[in-house]
Simulated scan of single mutants.
Amino acid sequence: MIAPYLRLVGVLGGCAAVLAGCARAGTPTAGVEGSDKSELTHSTAEMQRSAFVTGCGGTPAGWQATAVVSNRDQVEHRYLVVISFLTAESTVLERTSTEVTVAPGATQDFTTETLLDPVTRPQSVRCVLRGVEQL
Rank of each mutant, 00 (worst) to 15 (best):
V11C: 11
G13T: 15
A17H: 06
V18C: 07
V18E: 05
A25W: 08
G26I: 00
G31A: 08
V32D: 14
D36M: 11
D36H: 14
K37Q: 13
K37R: 15
L40G: 07
S43M: 07
A45M: 09
M47S: 12
Q48R: 13
S50H: 08
P60M: 09
W63T: 04
A65Y: 00
T66K: 12
T66R: 13
V69Y: 03
S70N: 07
S70G: 08
D73K: 11
Q74I: 11
E76M: 14
R78T: 14
V81D: 00
V81N: 00
V82C: 05
V82Q: 13
F85Y: 06
E89V: 05
E89G: 08
E89M: 08
T91I: 09
V92T: 14
L93Y: 00
T96K: 09
A103F: 09
G105Q: 06
A106N: 08
A106R: 12
D109G: 09
E113L: 10
L116Y: 05
D117P: 08
P118G: 07
P118R: 05
P118M: 05
P118K: 05
V119M: 11
T120E: 07
T120Y: 07
T120D: 08
R126T: 11
L129A: 02
R130G: 13
G131T: 01
G131C: 02
V132Q: 02
